[in-house]
Design a protein around this nucleic acid. Structure first.
Lengths: 340, 340
DNA sequence: ATGAAAGCGCTAACAG
DNA sequence: CTGTTAGCGCTTTCAT
C-alpha cells in the first residue's frame, strides 16, 4: 500500500500538493496535478479514508436507516440512494432497524455517533426529538424519506392528493360504490400514510357527493396476502357489492385482483381495482395505479444532503420541489357494468 | 463530544487504560474497568471510529457487494448479514453493483481499497482473479454467498441436490412428464446455478428411467412474469402436456401457477408445480418448494468472517457445514390425474 | 495492571 | 501556487 509520501516523492512535490491535487480542494498548477495523478496511478495509490477522515472531519459516507429491506418501496429507495451516492464518490452504510427498539437505541448511540457518517437518511422512521437533536448537535445533516420527522426536511409524496387522484379516477369512470383497503392502525405509528390516504379517498368521495360508507373500508398489512383477505371480505357480500376497490398499495391491490378471480369475478368487468406505487409486478397484473417513484426519492434525498455537505456546487435543485406522482392506467379499471 | 482524555481524567486513569477497558483487549483490573465505564457513560463517550481504525488498522466494518437489492434472495441475504453484523458490533457498507462494469471497477479500485472495510462478502458475483488477489494482498478476508468464486470460501446450497430433490418429489408422486423452467444462459455467467439445477433435474429423471425431453425445458429470467410466459409455452401444447413443472425459482413457479389458471388448468389436479426458495409468497400461493434459507446464508457468511477477524472466540462453527435445504410440501403438487 | 509516548496517514493552516 | 508542520483521537508497544 503506497502512502501519500511515496507519491509525493515520485511526483517531486510535497505531500500537501498531492493531497490538494487528488482531492480537488485548493489550487494546484496543471503541471503538478498531472504529475501527481501520474504518480498516484502508477503506484496504485488510494487514500486511506480513515486518515483522511480523521484529519478532515469528513467521512464521505452516509448512513441510511431503514426498517425493511425486503419490501419494494424500501429496497427501491435504497437502490436510488446507493446509486446517487456512488456517483458522488460516497459510501453508504446500512442500518436495518427491523427488530426491536433495543436495536434502535444501539444503532443511534453506538453507531451513528461513532463519527462514521457525514449525514443520515432516515427512511420511513419517525425519529424521536432526542435522536434528531443528537444528530443536529453533531452537525450531521438529516433527511427523511417517506415519513414525517418533526423539524426535519422530509421527502414524501402528497399521500392525500395521490389517494384522491386514484379515487377520482374510479369516480370518473362512473363508480359510486368504491371500497378502500387501507393500512392497519399500527402502521400509522411510524409513518402516517395510511391515514392520509384514507383522508384523500374520503375527500374525493365527498367532493363527488358520494357518502362514505364505513362498511366499504377494510384494513390490511400492505402485503399481497393481506390485500387478498381484505378483498375477499369486501367482495364476498351477497348484495351491494362494491364495483371498485382502491387499495393503498399495489401489493394489496394485486391481492385484491387474485381474490376477485377466486370469487369468480372478472376484473375489470365485475370490479375495478386501483393501487398506489407502480410496483414491479403492477405491469404484469395489468394493474392501474398511481406511480410514486421511490428510486427517485432516494436519489433526491442524496441531492439534498449534498447541497448541505458540499455547498460549493452550482446550487442545483430548488429546495422544495414536490415529489412527482402519476396515474398509470392499465387494464384493471373500467366503467362499471351497467345496472341490469 | 467527549474524548478519551476526558474520560481518563474523570476515571482517574490513563488513556491507555480507558482504551483497554473499553475495547476489552489487554488486562484491566475490575476496579479500573468499572470506573472507566462509569466515566464513559456519564460523559456519553463514544470512540471515534476513524481514530480507532487509523491507530489499530481495524475498521469494524464489512463491505457487502451485491448485484440486486430488490429481489427476495438478495435482500434476504443482506438482512441476515446485517443483523449478524449488528450483533457483533460491526457496520455494513453496501455496494450495489447493479449497473455496468464501469461501476464495478470503481467500487473495487476506489472503495474497497480505501481501507474502509475489514472484509468483504460478495453475493452472487463471480469476482475476477485480479479482484480476489487484490483483496488477499491487502489481507482482507473474503467470503462468497450464492456463487462460486475460485479460490474463495463460498456458501452455496448444493444446487444439483436441491433440484434433484424437487424433481424426485414429483417422480415420487407418479409424474413422468415433468417440465423444467430454468435460467437463461446469461444468468449462468455470474453464478452457475441455472446449469446446476438443470443437471439435478436431469439426473433425477435418468435415475428413474425417464428420458429427458428437451421440449420440456423452457428458459426464463427468474421473475414471475418470465415464469408465466415460459409455463404458457409448456402447458399450451395440444397433446402430451406435462403433468408437472419444476421451476428453478419460486417466482417462476408462481408465474407458472398463474399461467396454469389462465389456461383453465387446476393446480395440482391438472398440473403439479414445484419451485425452489421458499419465497415470502410461496405460502400464500400454496406452493410446494425446496426451501433454501438466504437469511441464514448471510448470517453464516458473517460467522465465517468473524472466525478470521477475531480468532480468539471459542472456535465456533466447524468449517465446512453444508448449507441446509428442505422440501416443503404445500398444495401445488399431487399425484397426476389417472389416465382416462 | 498501568502509564508514557510514539505513531497510524492524512489535511489544513500558515508562511512564503 | 507550493512546502512545512502541527495535529486529528485513538491504540499499542515498552517500561515499570
Amino acid at each position: 500500500m503506497a502512502g501519500i509520501e511515496e507519491v509525493a516523492k515520485l511526483a517531486g512535490v510535497s505531500t500537501a500538493t498531492v493531497s490538494r491535487a487528488l482531492s480537488g480542494r485548493g489550487h494546484v498548477s496543471p503541471g503538478s496535478k498531472a504529475k501527481v495523478i501520474e504518480a498516484a496511478t502508477q503506484l496504485g495509490y488510494v487514500v486511506s479514508s480513515n486518515a483522511s477522515s480523521l484529519a478532515s472531519g469528513r467521512t464521505r459516507n452516509i448512513g441510511v436507516v431503514i426498517p425493511f429491506l425486503n419490501r419494494w418501496f424500501f429496497s427501491s429507495v435504497l437502490e436510488g440512494a446507493q446509486q446517487a451516492l456512488l456517483r458522488k464518490g460516497y459510501d453508504l452504510t446500512l442500518y436495518n432497524l427491523s427488530g426491536d427498539g433495543n436495536e434502535r437505541v444501539s444503532v443511534f448511540e453506538h453507531f451513528l455517533l461513532r463519527q462514521r457518517v457525514d449525514a443520515v437518511i432516515a427512511v420511513s422512521l419517525e425519529l424521536t426529538e432526542r435522536e434528531v437533536t443528537r444528530l443536529h448537535d453533531l452537525g450531521k445533516p438529516l433527511v427523511g424519506v417517506g415519513g414525517p420527522i418533526p423539524g426535519v426536511r422530509t421527502l414524501t409524496i402528497d399521500d392525500v392528493a395521490v389517494a384522491r387522484l386514484a379515487t377520482e379516477h374510479l369516480i370518473g369512470l362512473g363508480h359510486t360504490r368504491i371500497a378502500h383497503i387501507g393500512g392497519q392502525l399500527e402502521f400509522d405509528l411510524d409513518f402516517h400514510l395510511p391515514t392520509n390516504r384514507r383522508l384523500g379517498y374520503e375527500a374525493a368521495l365527498l367532493d363527488a357527493g358520494i357518502e362514505v360508507d364505513p362498511r366499504l373500508f377494510a384494513p390490511a398489512d400492505f402485503t399481497i396476502k393481506g390485500g387478498y383477505h381484505a378483498a375477499k371480505q369486501l367482495l364476498g357480500v351477497p348484495r351491494d357489492r362494491p364495483t371498485a376497490i382502491f387499495a393503498a398499495s399495489d401489493e394489496m391491490a394485486i391481492g385484491s385482483i387474485l381474490a376477485a378471480r377466486d370469487l369468480g369475478l372478472v376484473v375489470p368487468r365485475d370490479v375495478s381495482i386501483i393501487g398506489i406505487d407502480d410496483h414491479d409486478l403492477a405491469d404484469f397484473f395489468g394493474l392501474t395505479t398511481v406511480a410514486q417513484f421511490p428510486r427517485l426519492q432516494g436519489e433526491k434525498a442524496v441531492e439534498i444532503l449534498m447541497e448541505q455537505l458540499e455547498p460549493d456546487a452550482d446550487a442545483a435543485a430548488p429546495a422544495a420541489t414536490p415529489l412527482p406522482y402519476e396515474l398509470i392506467v392499465r387494464s384493471s379499471t373500467a366503467r362499471p357494468a351497467p345496472v341490469d
